[in-house]
Amino acid sequence: MSRNSPSPKDDLTQLKQKLIHYKSEIRHVQNQLKSYERALEREKENTSFWKKKHAETLSTSEKEVEIEGLERELDLLRNELSEQKIIAEAFREKASRKQPVIEEKIVEKIIEKVVEKPVERFEKSDILCFFQHSILLPEQSERELMIFGNVIIQNQTSSTLHSPVLCLKMKPVASSTLSGKIVDEKSIEASSIPSSSLEWRYAHPKWNEKIQHDGEYWIKPIKQTSLKPKDKLLFDSFQVVIPLSSDTTSFILEGFFYSEEWQEGIPFLNKVVLNFP
């Protein structure tokens, strides 16, 4: 036997030390798992409360995104816990047989076993669409009310979405005007606005008629022609001007998201609803 070769006793001692290490790792992961499970239950209770109290608010959608993140963390922790348990069991078995252990080989085999096929997600609820907005109330001498906002689309599916299109619909028809980083396709080349600032264009060939007759703004991004999993699509800094008169009693802004995969449209999680006395 070579002088540099460990004795069976030394090898067994090393195995026991590694076994102690992996047991400690298992306890640590189990504690993390319990912590995430408690946090997940709290968030589910909070989300249930917000859904009952404000069914169409932005807070609910944010809570749902947070819960999805916690669930993914739990899945990762469960996988890690499975790995640690199987590795520890492999070392325990080798130690009982007093056989030399090649740690790298064991870990490679364990990882191959525990890697699971990604879950396919492609439900309507996996595409989050909502408004963020604020309202600027008019002064006494003013007769206009303004809404400033953003549209956020987040792809929570496991597939890429192609040719995204937004429809922003206002009621009553022709009661207000919407403006933002939108340009007519025919005017892109002739536009004096820097090309870097041009983000959206009208998606309907007769877009002006759709606005006047139906109150619908059909728009699509100029550069972002697809939306990968976990990516976001933003229509930011839009403005809506609402003239106020004695006939103005209410205003509604609602949104719909379309793509090649969702041609029937997905309504936004919330709406902008105003009622005037």
Rank of each mutant, 00 (worst) to 15 (best):
V115R: 14
V115D: 06
P118C: 10
P118Q: 09
P118N: 08
E120W: 11
R121N: 08
E123D: 15
S125E: 13
D126K: 12
I127P: 05
L128R: 15
C129L: 15
F130P: 01
F131G: 00
F131Y: 13
H133D: 07
S134F: 11
I135R: 07
P138Q: 11
P138Y: 10
Q140Y: 01
S141K: 15
E142F: 06
L145W: 06
I147F: 07
F148E: 03
G149K: 08
N150I: 01
V151Q: 04
V151S: 01
V151E: 07
V151P: 03
I153M: 01
I153W: 04
I153P: 02
Q154G: 01
N155K: 09
Q156L: 14
T157I: 04
T157F: 03
S158R: 08
S159K: 13
S159V: 11
T160D: 10
L161A: 02
H162A: 05
L166I: 03
L168E: 01
M170A: 06
K171T: 03
P172R: 06
P172H: 04
V173Y: 06
A174H: 13
A174N: 15
A174G: 04
S175N: 08
S176M: 02
T177F: 07
T177D: 05
T177P: 00
S179Q: 05
K181Y: 14
D184T: 06
D184K: 10
S187Y: 11
I188L: 15
E189T: 12
A190Q: 09
S191F: 02
S192L: 12
P194Y: 13
L198I: 06
L198M: 11
R201T: 11
P205R: 13
W207K: 00
W207F: 14
W207Q: 00
I211G: 00
G215A: 04
Y217Q: 01
K220F: 04
K220N: 11
P221G: 01
K223Q: 03
L227K: 00
K228I: 01
P229W: 09
K230I: 09
K230P: 04
D231K: 08
L233K: 03
L234S: 10
D236V: 02
S237V: 02
V240Q: 04
V240A: 02
V241F: 13
I242V: 15
I242T: 11
L244M: 09
S245R: 12
T248L: 11
T249H: 13
T249S: 13
F251W: 05
I252D: 03
I252V: 05
E254I: 00
E254Y: 10
F256E: 07
F257Y: 04
